[in-house]
Amino acid sequence: MTAPHARIRPATADDAAGLAALQATCWRQTYAGTVPEHVLADRERTGLEWWQRRLADPGGASTWVATRAGELLGFAVAEAVGPGDVRPLRLRALYVLAQEHGTGLGQALLDTAVGDAPCFLWVAEENPRAHAFYRRNGFEPDGAREIAERWGGVAGVRLVR
């Protein structure tokens, strides 16, 4: 399933620079006013190196990108975490550009990355759009909450299905 005129494919090492730029834009669109500026700036500074490492050695993770006319529009990262966690599959990230909200692109990425498998993810407590999206897809809070110091003290909640 894809949003109109979008293609979802596995990410390759050649996508590192594009993913770093896309992630920086999505984080600013999503977390401006919530995450301190210095945290966003630091993530932008280190993003390319992080993506180069992630795509060179993904471990148990799969990264998917959504493209249209060669432009990266969104991405999802899912990883097998094994039986010792709350679910064996974790959705580590799912972001789409703000102009793609409501187009079905996020849904297509979710469906591609984790399908309807039992899964968990962490989401910012103060992100009602994400909470509504995941609720529509069967995710519910399980009561776990953490303060992410590396994100400037943003509170996150764990969602499971």
Rank of each mutant, 00 (worst) to 15 (best):
C26H: 02
G18K: 03
A132T: 13
R53I: 10
G104E: 12
R158V: 10
R53Q: 15
A124F: 11
R43D: 08
E37Q: 14
A21F: 00
E125Y: 08
L55V: 05
R7S: 11
W27C: 09
A24L: 01
R53L: 13
P10I: 04
A69N: 15
I8S: 09
V157I: 15
G156I: 05
T2G: 08
R145F: 00
R150K: 01
A98V: 10
A117I: 00
E140I: 08
W122M: 12
E149L: 06
A108R: 02
E149Y: 00
R158H: 10
R150L: 00
G106W: 04
A6P: 00
L105C: 13
D42P: 00
Y134A: 04
P36T: 07
T112A: 13
P88S: 06
G106E: 10
A21N: 01
A11Y: 07
N127E: 14
P4H: 12
A32Q: 13
H5S: 15
L159T: 12
V39W: 06
N137A: 05
P58W: 05
Y134P: 02
L55P: 05
L73Y: 03
A24V: 00
L109S: 08
A113K: 08
V157Y: 08
S62R: 14
L89H: 09
L97N: 09
T63W: 02
E126T: 14
S62W: 00
A69G: 14
L109I: 07
A32F: 03
E140R: 15
P36F: 08
P10V: 04
G70M: 05
H38A: 15
Q99Y: 05
R9A: 10
G60N: 07
D85L: 06
R158C: 13
P88C: 04
L91R: 07
T2Q: 12
D14T: 09
R145E: 14
R68F: 02
I8H: 09
T103R: 06
V35H: 11
M1W: 04
R7L: 14
D111C: 00
E126N: 14
H5W: 10
L72K: 00
H5I: 01
Y95E: 07
E100P: 03
G102T: 03
A6R: 06
L89M: 13
V77L: 02
R7C: 06
P10G: 06
L91V: 12
P118H: 10
T112F: 03
D142I: 11
P83F: 06
E44S: 12
L105I: 10
F120I: 04
R158N: 13
L72W: 00
L89S: 06
A93Q: 15
T2I: 11
A108I: 02
W64N: 07
L97T: 10
G47T: 05
M1A: 12
D15Q: 08
T30I: 02
D42M: 04
G102L: 05
Y95M: 11
A56S: 15
V81C: 04
D85G: 03
G70V: 04
A148I: 03
V81E: 03
R9K: 03
G70Y: 02
F75P: 02
P118L: 11
T34H: 11
E140H: 14
G106S: 11
D42H: 08
S62E: 13
W27M: 07
G18H: 04
A17I: 04
F133T: 10
V35C: 13
L159N: 08
F120W: 13
G143W: 10
I8D: 11
W151P: 01
T63M: 05
D116N: 03
T34R: 14
T67S: 12
